[in-house]
Design a protein around this nucleic acid. Structure first.
Length: 882
DNA sequence: ATAGGGTTAG
């Protein structure tokens, strides 16, 4: 019992009660309290069911004669009964009001009216009957009480129904079931569960309805243990072969991901009905086993079980998951023949299938031809547009449905938010948020989560933060959304902080891990990344493909290429992402040949490269200066895969040309591109000009860059460095003035190094760093030594003779040099030094890195904003291009 | 009189 955990407070009461129930014969319920005036001639069983409709006139006649001996009262109860029988509530109420005060209306008659109120869902009249009973001082209990509760629940006033229920002694299982179901229907599973336990404590015998309901609740709450206890309990009570109950059990186990349990139960059933089959099918589908679901459907057809609407809906959902449009069409045709195609639910499903299979036109066609649409139809269509990135169409639909007077529910709102998120439409997203605020829907957890997701996808973390801070309850999804948002929006430190804060409340799950890993990756925080990896292993979190890919990516970006490769090799079923990550990884680290080999392996594995994987391979070729290979892939992409190159692909080719020193060719290439060049592509050429010291072309290129992005300080800095390296200090000065005029400030160069769980940060031209003196001394000595042994290019940096300020403006301020120096002083022997820098590495520091690696026999991994530099034995993996 | 399977989002 001790293993029951926190939930044992409630779950403990099952076993003792189960024992009681099985240990003793059936516990008789208390005798029914019948209205005193009822004669024995009314059948008790019909009273127990509260069914007075058939016998009301005879009952009333005997009663009233007994009570008054006069004809007038006789008429009143009989008359009301007659009105009730024909469903004329209005007249029945009128009579009740008139004769009620005289004390002439009896209890069975009241029950009759209440039943009618329930049937007609007339809460107002039901309330009137209730207040009549109160004024008349009639005791509300037994059948009357039950009827009253039934009326309230039927009319949707669960609160009042519960109040009455609590006041009466109810041994009526039906009533308990009714309330439990009502709670479950509105999603208050917890209330339903509490009522169930209370019912057991009260000593009311559960029946098959009870078990169906409670299993549904436990499935929804994912309370596997409690559900299993109920399973044991119901077996003891002998419900083990009751079809409806076993059906519920099957669904329960599938929802709790206990697929084998569900299968076993199904296999052992002696009487399977269509619901059993449907449950199996949907069980497979919810567990992502759509293929098995379809197989089950085949079995249903083969065995001639017969299908119903649900069968069709489920098998179509399976088709949507599989994404097979031809199978969907075949089943669509089958369903039309079977006569299901006129049902709205069916249309909703088939519409969803078409849209999920990528046939949005087909979906629109069905939607527009639907005679009757419900809120699900609208939601599906909005979601369909969302998947296609058509957020304007989705938003238009959202507007239309409101115009039609339909009140958007949580599904509609989250779908439209998702559509805005997918297309990054902040404008529409904000409008939806307005609607949400006006309708007080922000308090809904799922809505708030969807809002944060929308804002984070639209790049507005401030808005996401606002939503997050207003939330009163947050689930793990809320935290994961924020963490992932920070990660993806270039705020890795915030992501890490969030991850730490989260752990005060929640244990990170596999999603949290996939969300935080990119943050570790972008910070180059290897230690943190490793911690997360350890956490993953220790807690046996599912390391599905997503997690595995994120891990490989993290290790790649943190400079642990060997580890990354090891993990990559362990992935059994690699997807396109896995391959692309690894190819890009090799490229980033300057291993172009390995990148090419990996690309070829991927093709051999039968995975088709897409746009992105071509960017990876082209990038890898250009970084490693593999000119011919790069062109080969570029042509392969265009001619064999028929992928139109995008700007990113062109940028790689420009880089390839520029590195090869074919600068004017690169210039012409840009001019002749079928796409309008953006700032990035010009910057690539500008970097090429820097490598090859072509100041004149650089100026021409820079004009384009500044025209497109006049506010980006990186460009000023790059040109300033080109000038500085050509010792054109006047031009450096002029550039600086231009920046000041525009009110731009240079981004502070900043490098960091992790050591023994600490992160040491070095900021350019600041001297308040750890071991400042020792580092300065070391660097001074090294510079001197470099100068003495130096060749012309090294002298260039060492001999710069101008004001220190300008030099620092032009160059990076050497934060990476400080960090590397710190690494030399502090890092344990034999261990590589890993430094990360926020900007691109400067030439002087690059030389210093090479020099250091040779002098101290140390491997240094420097990650700048572009790629890795592996310094080893005086050389760099970037082969001199950076 | 109450139920068990199905569609929409994240």
């Amino acid at each position: 019992m001790s293993s029951m955990g926190k939930t044992s407070v409630v779950s403990l009461c099952i076993y003792p009660l189960a024992y009681d129930y099985t240990g003793k014969p059936f516990i008789p319920t208390k005798p029914l309290i019948l209205p005193k005036s009822l004669s024995s001639e009314t059948s008790v069983s019909s009273l127990a069911r509260g069914d007075f409709r058939n016998s009301v006139s005879t009952k009333a006649s005997i009663l009233s004669v007994n009570r008054t001996g006069k004809d007038c009262s006789f008429d009143c109860n009989v008359e009301i009964g007659k009105f009730c029988e024909v469903g004329n509530l209005q007249k029945a109420m009128e009579l009740l009001c008139r004769s009620g005060n005289l004390g002439l209306v009896d209890v069975p008659t009241c029950c009759c009216i209440l039943q009618l109120c329930a049937d007609l869902k007339s809460l107002d009249n039901g309330r009137k009957v209730h207040s009549f009973l109160n004024t008349a001082g009639i005791e509300i209990n037994g059948v009357l009480g039950s009827k009253l509760v039934f009326m309230y629940v039927s009319c949707g006033d669960l609160v009042e129904g519960r109040r009455v229920f609590d006041k009466i002694d109810s041994e009526n299982v039906f009533l308990w079931n009714l309330l439990m179901n009502a709670y479950a229907k509105m999603g208050s599973f917890q209330d339903s569960v509490l009522l169930f336990y209370k019912m057991l404590e009260t000593g009311v015998q559960a029946n098959s309805y009870t078990f169906s309901c409670i299993l549904k609740c436990f499935a929804a709450l994912r309370s596997r243990r409690e559900g299993e206890e109920v399973h044991a309990y119901l077996l003891k009570l002998g419900f083990g072969s009751c079809t409806t109950v076993v059906n519920s059990l099957i669904t329960f186990y599938f929802k709790c991901r206990r697929i084998e349990h569900g299968q076993k139960l199904f296999d052992k059933m002696c009487e399977r009905d269509i619901i059993s089959w449907n449950s199996m099918m949907s069980g497979y589908v919810v567990n992502g086993l759509a293929q098995k679901g379809i197989k089950t459907f085949n079995e249903i057809l083969r065995q001639g079980v017969g299908v119903d609407l649900s069968t069709m809906v489920v098998v179509l959902a399976a088709c949507a998951d599989v994404g097979s449009i031809w199978l969907s069409k075949a089943i669509h045709a089958y369903a039309m023949k079977a006569g299901f195609a006129t049902k709205m639910d069916f249309d909703n499903t088939i519409m969803d299938v078409y849209s999920k299979c990528g046939d949005i036109g087909g979906a629109v066609c069905i939607f527009q031809n639907m005679v009757e649409k419900d809120i699900v139809s609208w939601t599906s269509m909005i979601a369909g547009y969302g998947r296609e990135g058509m957020s304007n169409e989705a938003f238009e639909l959202f507007r239309t449905l409101r115009k039609r007077g339909i009140n958007p529910d949580v599904f509609v709102v989250t779908s439209i938010l998702h559509a805005c998120a997918c297309s990054g439409s902040l404008e529409n997203g904000l409008k939806v948020h307005e609607y949400i605020k006006e309708n007080n829907m922000e308090s809904n957890l799922v809505v708030s989560n969807a809002l944060m997701n929308m804002y984070s996808k639209c790049g507005s973390m401030e808005n996401a933060e606002n939503v997050f801070s207003r939330m009163t309850t947050r689930d793990i999804v809320s935290w994961n959304t924020m963490i992932g948002g920070y990660s993806k929006n270039g705020l890795p430190s915030e992501a890490l902080n969030m991850f730490i804060r989260m752990q005060l409340q929640f244990r990170p799950d596999d999603v949290s891990v996939t969300c935080i890993l990119p943050a570790c990756a972008s910070l180059g925080a290897l230690e943190r990344g490793r911690e997360v990896h350890c956490y993953l292993l220790k807690n046996e979190l599912s390391s599905d493909l997503l997690v595995a890919n994120a891990l490989v990516d993290m290790y790649v970006k943190c400079g642990a290429l060997a580890t990354a490769k090891l993990l990559f090799d362990k992935i059994v079923l690699k997807d396109l992402f896995s391959w692309t990550i690894m190819i890009a990884g090799f490229g980033m680290h300057g291993f172009g040949r390995e990148a090419i080999a990996t690309f070829n392996e991927m093709r051999q594995a039968g995975i088709e490269p897409d746009e992105t994987s071509f960017i990876s391979i082209l990038y890898a070729c250009s970084h490693s200066g593999l000119f011919d290979e790069g062109w080969k892939f570029f042509n392969l992409m265009r001619n064999e895969f028929h992928i139109q190159p995008k700007l990113d692909h062109y940028a790689c080719i420009v880089d390839l040309l520029a590195r090869a020193g074919k600068l004017s060719m690169a210039y012409k290439f840009i001019k002749n591109m079928p796409l309008e060049p953006d700032a990035t592509i010009w910057t690539v050429l500008l970097s090429g000009c820097r490598m090859h010291h072509d100041v004149r072309l650089a100026e021409k290129v820079a004009d384009h860059v500044f025209e497109l992005e006049p506010e980006n300080t990186h460009h000023y800095l790059l040109l300033a460095n080109i000038y500085a390296e050509a010792e054109k200090w006047n031009e450096v000065q002029q550039l600086r003035q231009r920046m000041i005029k525009r009110g731009l400030k240079k981004n502070v160069g900043c490098s960091w190094i992790g050591m023994k769980g600490e992160v040491y940060i070095f900021v350019s031209s600041r001297t308040n760093h750890p071991e400042a003196r020792n580092i300065t001394l070391l660097l001074k000595d090294l510079s001197k030594e470099m100068k003495e042994q130096g060749d012309a290019s090294r002298k260039k940096y060492a001999l710069i003779n101008t004001e220190e300020k300008q030099k620092q403006f032009a160059l990076c301020g050497h934060s990476e040099k400080l960090a590397m120096g710190f690494g030399i002083l502090r890092s344990p022997p034999g261990k590589a030094i890993r430094v990360t820098k926020n900007l691109r590495v400067c030439g002087e520091c690059h030389e210093m890195g090479k020099f250091m690696s040779k002098k101290f026999g140390k491997e240094i991994l420097l990650r700048d904003s572009n790629r890795f530099h592996h310094f080893k034995d005086g050389t760099c993996s970037c082969r001199g291009y950076w």
